[in-house]
Design a protein around this nucleic acid. Structure first.
Lengths: 166, 166
DNA sequence: AATTCGTGGATAAAAAATATCCACGATTAG
DNA sequence: CTAATCGTGGATATTTTTTATCCACGAATT
């Protein structure tokens, strides 16, 4: 069982957007450059996030992505579901009904107990992810080379703004 | 995120073995036939379960697999870990350290908060699976065609025993 | 009006999962 | 004793899924 790398990229992207100053946006290209990932692939996930109502898009020159709501209102679960979809990891294939089983079909009206147990665990997993919001994750602080304290990504944001200010 | 089909096959196999009478065993071929899956593929998972101490093997003619301990002592988590491995679904690729990030390396001595949150959710997931044992799943009951009540699989076991009694 | 951006579908490349096969050693029924 | 049966474990093929890329289009802003 492996979670797609897109999820990690998406969470980091949204986290960075949460550090933006009022009115600020970041283009898909800038986000991809900062995270060192493929722009066209990240785009796919940014669009999923936008479609899920987590991000807003600003078209035109100086456009890009920004949060659609407050960091406190965005949970990790929201992001994971937007990128990976809501299909459970465990999919009951109704194995119990296969093979030369001479047992009556009436049994199978009741749900598979194995499936029920697996899905319950997934519900617990998702509930835990729902507890953590972007606000909880916060912005990591760092000492930059000149000795000052900077929010993670801020230094990059400055660089990016210098570029776009041309 | 998708869990391998092997997990489902493994759980059903172990569940069926838990319904075996004292001293009884089932061969990999019989388990595969009952579940309608490939024998050689199921074998791979049965061997993993045996290696994990969940199943015992009985070699020779009339040999096969049986539980290595009481159903109450076998949790769904044990089976999932044996088949899928214990690697977490979310693997932090340390995206935060990539790209043209001018922030000091000292920041990265601390664990990634995103990674921490994702792993915490996985711990909760596993804890929930650990709560459910084979005994909890129990043996499903069914009304067979002649109107009597039979444990799921028992009818098949009878067929199998008739075969092997030749 | 030209630049810059996101949209969305089509498609290619890479990686996993699934499935199969074979030669070997161990065990036990007959 | 010996022949049949079973599990072991590695190698390998097949299929499916994931990941990644590309391109033509429409929208908005300077």
């Amino acid at each position: 069982m492996k979670m797609g790398d897109g999820v990690e990229q998406a969470i980091h992207s949204v986290a960075m957007l949460s550090g933006l100053s009022e009115g600020g946006v970041l283009s898909a290209a800038a986000l991809a450059e900062f995270h060192g990932v493929s722009t066209s692939y990240l785009l796919k996930h940014l669009q999923a996030l936008s479609g899920a109502g987590i991000l807003d898009t600003v078209p035109g020159p100086k456009g890009g992505y920004r949060l659609a709501k407050a960091p406190k209102e965005i949970s990790l679960l929201d992001i994971v579901l937007a990128v990976e979809g809501s299909t459970p990891a465990f999919r009951c294939a109704e194995i119990r009904q296969r093979g030369p089983n001479p047992v009556s079909d009436r049994l199978f009206a009741q749900p598979c107990t194995i499936n029920a147990a697996m899905l319950k665990a997934e519900r617990v997993y998702r509930a835990e992810l729902a507890k953590t919001s972007l606000a909880d994750i916060g912005i990591e602080l760092a000492t930059v080379d000149d000795g000052s304290i900077a929010a993670r990504g801020c230094a990059f944001l400055e660089i990016h703004e210098r570029k776009t200010a041309r």
